[in-house]
Amino acid sequence: MPPTPASTTTIVASLPALLGFIPEDSLVLITALTNDDGSVTTGPLARIDLTRITGHADDCARHVNRQCGNLPVFCVIGIVVRTVDEDNADGESLPQRTDVDSLIEQLAEHGFTDVDVVHVPAVAEGARWRSYRDADRTGVLPDPAATAAAAAAVAAGHTIAASRDDLAARFTPAPENLRARLQPHITDAVASAAIDESWHLTAHLRLARADAAISAATHGELPTDDSDVADLAATFATLSFRDALLAVPDDATRLAAENLVLHLWRHSCDPVAGQLAIVIAVHAYLRGSGTVARIALENADPQQPMTLLLSTVLDHAVAPSEARHVIENASADARRTLLSEPAIDQA
């Protein structure tokens, strides 16, 4: 049984807050889950470029099944976002109907029988959505910025960009000449960080500098001095220090750490930049911004175990709440190891 028209309207209007950007030319698949108390909550979602839908409905259905095949799925709702001529946007002329029908059939083969797909020309106030399956199911969107989901996203410090491209534009490196000037300094700092791993006193000082930089970033203060940028880039790119710094107290601090490391990433070259992108992805994931996490992973070292692990976690829509304690415990262990005074052999 599909959601009511009112709840469908709310879901469609909430897409920018759920995704972190306003989708265009997209298919968004959202699952609704039944909880033990009988309530229904939003489950895993996926956004797919419309250009990838034609002829690949089976791939889309497999992706949904991989995300939530073991979850108590109440229903699946798909939203096709594509501009059309409103005068001709009746139930029979909705865009990519053949692809949508094929997707519904493929989802049914995986056991998802309660499915509705709707079309909306744009996720904007006043836009009308229409169902592919029932011509009588329709509604008009309110202002997406006025939804409860948008208010919650803003309160959590999440960015809602005009498009995915705008969100990805945050990952624009600094000018090449600036990065080239900093590269030897960062290389030297990485060598120093490797030495500091073995000495608990210098490890303490290095972690203290990074902790202070994260604290400053909560107030919008980012390092500008070359030596500070190089020192911090090396710290966050060194595995043991990186792990020790992943545990932070709340989402506001996670966002600050993410912004700090993104600033360092812009000023770094590979392989350091590829390591820093992993840190950005982890913080973005833990604060609930899967889109930013995926964009960060596009810039990360693909051979690193954390890159592969986080990609798998995102593909299977593992909730941050389920992974947070594992990452925080591992981070606390890494910090203890770095700060432990080595045993002294007795003659």
Rank of each mutant, 00 (worst) to 15 (best):
L15N: 05
P16A: 01
A17T: 01
L18G: 00
L18Q: 06
P23I: 07
D25H: 09
S26Q: 09
L27D: 10
V28M: 03
L29G: 02
A32P: 03
L45C: 03
A46S: 05
A46C: 00
D49M: 03
T51V: 12
T51K: 11
I53P: 01
A57D: 06
V64E: 04
V64F: 09
V76D: 04
I77H: 13
G78Q: 12
V81M: 03
E86F: 02
N88Q: 14
D90G: 01
G91K: 01
G91Y: 05
G91C: 02
R97D: 08
V100E: 07
D101F: 14
S102D: 14
E105Y: 06
A108K: 14
A108M: 05
E109R: 08
E109F: 03
E109S: 04
F112A: 00
T113R: 11
T113D: 09
D116H: 14
V117A: 06
H119T: 08
P121I: 08
G126M: 00
G126W: 00
R133N: 13
T138C: 07
L141W: 10
P142H: 02
P142D: 11
D143H: 06
P144I: 10
A145D: 12
A146P: 00
V154G: 00
A161L: 11
A162P: 04
D165L: 10
D165Y: 00
L167M: 12
A169H: 09
F171H: 12
F171I: 00
A174G: 05
P175M: 05
E176D: 15
E176V: 15
H185W: 07
I195S: 00
E197A: 01
A203L: 05
A208F: 08
A208I: 05
A217E: 13
E221C: 04
T224A: 12
D226G: 08
A233K: 06
F236K: 03
T238A: 05
T238L: 01
S240G: 06
R242D: 02
A247R: 15
T253M: 12
E258S: 10
N259P: 01
L264M: 12
S268A: 15
C269T: 15
D270N: 15
P271G: 10
V272E: 11
L276H: 09
A277Y: 13
V282C: 15
G288I: 10
V292Q: 14
A293H: 09
E298W: 04
M306C: 04
T307Q: 08
T307W: 13
L308Q: 15
L309S: 14
D315W: 01
A317G: 02
P320E: 05
P320I: 07
S321K: 08
A323I: 11
H325C: 04
H325G: 02
A330K: 12
A332I: 12
A334M: 13
T337C: 04
S340H: 14
P342R: 02
